[in-house]
Simulated assay, not measured.
Amino acid sequence: MSIYDFNGFLKNINSGPLRVLYTAIPNNKYVPLDLSESNKLLNAIDVSSSEKLGAYVNNHIKTNGAQVAFGGYLEVRNIYKRSNHFNKQAQEERNIHLGIDLWCTAETPIYAPLDATVHSFRNNTNYGDYGPTIILKHHISGIEFYTLYGHLSLASIQHLEVGQTFKQGNKIATLGKASVNGDYPPHLHFQVIKDIQDYQGDYPGVCSKTDFEFYKSNCPNPNLLLKL
């Protein structure tokens, strides 16, 4: 299936928005958030500090009368420069974000947007990494694909089992604090993955310019499902 056909498939799975947060939060309580390198307001903020970045995000949410800030798909970001996990020697910098981030408070419940089974999970403990992570497998109309949930609480993976099933709308996790989520302000990294390859409990959520075309094709816009 071509990426264009797959995008159309994702868009048409449901006529309305699918949700990974409380279904009662209306679209007008989600506010877009720009964390790209072109956002000059970030130049005055120490984005390496989860506290200072969190204050910026929370102020953005409050100023806009929202409950959740969202965005980031294919956004080129500077916030990864703080971590060697994204800038290992002899490798090109990885700074292009492949999912959508949903910024809200720690312990916020996360729900399955579709019927799913647990493909894998892991605590990715590199500095700046996902922290506790769950990957779900979906099989709809003969098509298999995956969704990734990063920056979760440790409790989210303590009693999980590979192959465990979730129905659409079931609670699957809660968001983690900076102390466990890779040192970020609390948020969900939500990513759609066409081919999981050989990954278990992890999948690149940030890529380099060299690998951009592959990852753009393999990780389509999650907003095709969320419709924010």
Rank of each mutant, 00 (worst) to 15 (best):
M1L: 11
I3N: 13
K11D: 11
N12D: 15
S15A: 14
P17K: 13
V20Q: 08
Y22C: 01
Y22K: 10
T23D: 15
Y30V: 07
D34F: 07
L35M: 12
S36W: 10
E37C: 06
E37D: 12
S38W: 13
N39V: 10
L41N: 14
N43R: 11
S49C: 05
S50A: 15
V57D: 11
N58R: 12
F70R: 03
G72F: 13
G72T: 09
E75K: 06
Y80G: 00
S83V: 04
N87A: 09
A90T: 11
H97G: 02
H97E: 03
G99A: 14
I100Q: 13
A106C: 02
E107Y: 13
T108L: 09
T108N: 10
L114D: 05
D115R: 02
A116Q: 03
T117S: 11
S120N: 00
S120I: 04
F121Y: 10
F121C: 02
F121L: 00
N123Q: 02
N126V: 00
D129M: 00
T133R: 05
L136S: 05
K137E: 15
H139D: 15
I140V: 15
I140N: 05
I143C: 07
Y149T: 00
G150H: 04
H151C: 04
H151F: 04
L152Q: 05
L154C: 08
A155K: 14
A155D: 15
A155R: 11
H159M: 03
V162Q: 14
V162G: 05
K167I: 08
Q168H: 13
G169N: 13
A173E: 04
K177H: 13
K177N: 14
S179M: 09
N181T: 11
G182E: 00
D183H: 08
H187Y: 11
H189K: 01
F190E: 01
I193S: 00
K194D: 10
K194C: 11
I196E: 07
Q197C: 12
Y203M: 01
V206Q: 04
V206R: 00
C207S: 10
S208D: 03
E213G: 00
N218K: 07
N218H: 06
L225R: 06
